[in-house]
């Protein structure tokens, strides 16, 4: 049985600091949300419906994908499938925070997960790799990102015309650039570099040959297998055969 003491104490001051820290990136999220709000209106959602969706779903890529299915009649199973496939990366993201999340009570743990999204997860996971435990960024950073997403959607719904083509401003690349900068921070061991190469090849193969939107999970699991078979203390030779299999 797990013991029921939860040593991780969330520090309110650090939560506020992380809110401020992710504020700049949340400005980009506002722009992304504006694009979503505009697209939602154009797909036939009412303003309040678009805002409701952003508030409760809070997962941009899957919301855009849902709009593709929108019409007078919306098919349920394809909607569930596409939303699940795109958001299935959350399963792995959540799992990767488990070593920290197990140290807060279940109530807090699942409340924090309500705010789990790419940007705040990337910060937390990256700091964990470098030996720092930071769940405060999930809460503080998640809050600012969530508010930015809702505010952006609201802007797009009512003033979407101001941002007709966000691609021209490079705004579609915000998340990609952010995640890339997170990945490249800090020192990388050979083990990590090998797992990246495997993840890159596996995700490309999945993107080409597997059903749509499965490439993130496929690539991440393939990279994870390298870690599973190649522990830091063990000799490097074990990884190569695993790279073949995945």
């Amino acid at each position: 049985m797990p013991n029921h003491s939860y040593p991780y104490q969330l520090q309110p001051r650090k939560v506020r600091a992380e809110f401020v820290r992710l504020f700049p990136i949340s400005l980009f999220v506002v722009a992304f949300g504006t694009a979503f709000g505009l697209a939602a209106i154009q797909s036939g959602l009412a303003p309040l419906e678009a805002i409701l969706m952003s508030t409760t779903v809070f997962a941009g890529a899957s919301q855009f994908a849902a709009l593709e299915l929108w019409g007078k009649e919306v098919p349920i199973l394809p909607l569930v499938a596409v939303v699940f496939a795109i958001n299935s990366r959350h399963l792995l993201m959540g799992a990767s925070l488990y070593p920290m999340l197990k140290d807060v009570s279940p109530g807090k743990r699942y409340s924090l997960l309500l705010l789990l999204t790419d940007a705040n997860w990337a910060v937390s996971a990256q700091e964990y790799q470098n030996g720092r435990r930071n769940l405060e960024v999930i809460l503080g950073g998640g809050l600012v990102l969530w508010l930015a997403w809702i505010f952006g959607t609201w802007l797009g719904v009512y003033f979407g015309g101001l941002l007709q083509n966000p691609k021209n401003l490079g705004l579609d690349m915000v998340l990609g650039c952010f995640l890339l900068s997170m990945a490249l921070g800090g020192k990388k061991s050979p083990r990590v570099l090998v797992s990246w190469a495997v993840a890159a090849v596996a995700s490309l193969a999945a993107w080409k040959w597997l059903p749509p939107n499965t490439h993130v999970v496929t690539g991440a699991l393939a990279g994870g297998l390298i870690g599973y078979f190649w522990l830091d203390k063990k000799p490097a030779g074990q990884a190569s055969q695993e790279a073949e299999q995945s």
């Binding site: 990366r89 792995l92 993201m93 799992a95 990767s96 488990y98 070593p99 197990k102 790419d118 990337a122 996971a125 990256q126 964990y128 790799q129 990609g176 995640l179 890339l180 997170m182 990945a183 083990r191 990590v192 797992s195 990246w196 495997v198 993840a199 890159a200 596996a202 995700s203 490309l204 993107w207 490439h215 993130v216 999970v217 496929t218 690539g219 991440a220 699991l221 393939a222 990279g223 994870g224 297998l225 390298i226 870690g227 599973y228 190649w230 522990l231 830091d232």
Partner: peptide, 27 residues
């Protein structure tokens, strides 16, 4: 959470980033 699982989690975590970015670049 054995050392092996911990190691899996850690390489998987940074692989998530790569698996998002690389296909994004290629497409």
């Amino acid at each position: 959470i054995s050392p092996r699982i911990e190691s899996f989690i850690n390489t998987m975590a940074s692989s998530v980033l790569i698996a998002i970015i690389v296909p994004m670049a290629f497409s």
